[in-house]
Design a protein around this nucleic acid. Structure first.
Lengths: 240, 240
DNA sequence: CGGGCTTATGGTCGAGGCAACCTGAAGGGG
DNA sequence: CCCCTTCAGGTTGCCTCGACCATAAGCCCG
């Protein structure tokens, strides 16, 4: 049988990055991706997106979640289908290295994991985290897949409340704004961000205040996301 | 081998519909979909989306185009991947009819065909056109797939110049506006539509005028779409 | 304990997009 | 020849968004 179907995931987490742009040098947030080292022949030894074959008796999304958890130990807070690659599409920019990657169809998901959980993957074998602006050489066309996932994230964070998937269930508006700034790569006005975030309805105030903040100053309220839809794209639901 | 991979398409065309809403009764444009009658056991005799198994030696998009042309005889002006369904996802709302549709993964594309071409499919066997608001009972969960494709079309026509995929290479602004009105289901202001269409840059005036119009009146310019990207979603291109 | 610093919070203002509406012009049909 | 339909362009008002400013509320440090 010449047809293989794999399910892989672009997993995105937000952690303080040591990338010294020369700005302030403080703990600037950046996007990180866990990759696994291939142990089989096509591109053996290269880094690749975590994934696995389509499991038995479960749907595509569950298969993606299983493969993701098995290979990295993570439990994503958000998971959505990205694109289905396959056939000879991926051989566009390959010359003739490796045997025959034809007849390999891979359905790729993209996932967001919370900050406190992104350390769980350290335990897994052959898994290493890389910042998205300093990726190693990747197997297949995975670099393009990652670029596409990043474009999707940057586009979707503008109109959909998915930023809190990077954060715990309760967070301050400053933390949420830091997520947006890290993803979009530019600073946002605190006042405007507060207004449009509260007006969008994706977030609600808990009423509780945050007192023990490390060195930050004034009236910090805490906000909580109301409903985190894990997979808003599939057909059962029509886009608003 | 328990894994089957199929490629099917939601094909959309615009043709005058005989649906008498009681408005003006004239040739109102409506969306139509070609369906094929199943001749094999799961849901035999029911109408289903045209498709076929993943062919040899070609990519997913080319496979979708081949299956589409083979079963309906159409050549779509626009083709884009919609979603990958499979595993047990589709058994959510099935009780226990049919044998075992598990392990069937189908990658669904959506396509737009031009008005002058949508008659070509009449020749094909077992193919019939249905208006989207009067669909018969469909096999599998294809009704949800169609709903999802319609939602994508209505959402994407608002920000992307894909409406001219329903029209010949040159068309009047009135024709383009009629397409938008038919897809969105509401009337649009001619002046505002003209302004934002010309400002969007997706269309350019040819300078030629249309004289022999049937009964319509005055200065009709013709416009031509500049570049029709068939598949704007895949990773090589990042969303603007 | 108090000054200075950082940051949230609310307000204002101007630019731009958009929907609705109006007026004039160009043809074609009765 | 008059009327009717439709395009073409203009105007107005509303809403949104980004930029900017002022104030207040803590925290840090002297």
């Amino acid at each position: 049988m010449a047809l293989q179907l794999a399910v892989s995931s672009v997993i995105l987490a937000l952690r303080p990055s040591p990338d010294d742009d020369g700005d302030d040098g403080g703990g600037v947030l950046g996007l990180w991706i866990p990759l696994v080292r291939r142990i089989r022949e096509p591109y053996e030894g290269r880094w690749a997106l975590p994934g696995g074959p389509l499991g038995e008796g479960c749907g595509l999304e569950q298969a993606a979640r299983n493969a993701l958890t098995t290979s990295t130990g993570l439990d994503p807070a958000y998971l959505e289908q990205l694109y289905a690659f396959g056939g000879l599409d991926r051989s566009r920019d390959r010359e003739n290295e490796g045997p025959d990657p034809d007849r390999v169809v891979s359905i790729v998901y993209w996932a967001l994991v919370r900050a406190e959980e992104d350390q769980a993957a350290v335990r897994a074998h052959n898994v290493e985290w890389f910042p998205v602006d300093a990726l190693p050489d990747l197997a297949f066309d995975h670099i393009q897949v990652i670029d596409y996932a990043l474009a999707r994230l940057r586009a979707k964070i503008l109109y959909s409340p998915i930023a809190h998937a990077f954060l715990p269930t309760e967070f301050t508006l400053a933390e949420l704004r830091a997520v947006h700034e890290a993803v979009l790569g530019r600073e946002l006005d605190p006042a405007n961000f507060r207004r449009q975030t509260l007006a969008s309805g994706g977030v609600e105030p808990t009423g509780r205040r945050l007192e023990g903040t490390n060195h930050r100053p004034p009236s910090l309220y805490r906000y909580r996301a109301e409903s985190v839809a894990t997979s808003p794209t599939p057909p059962p639901r029509s886009a608003s």
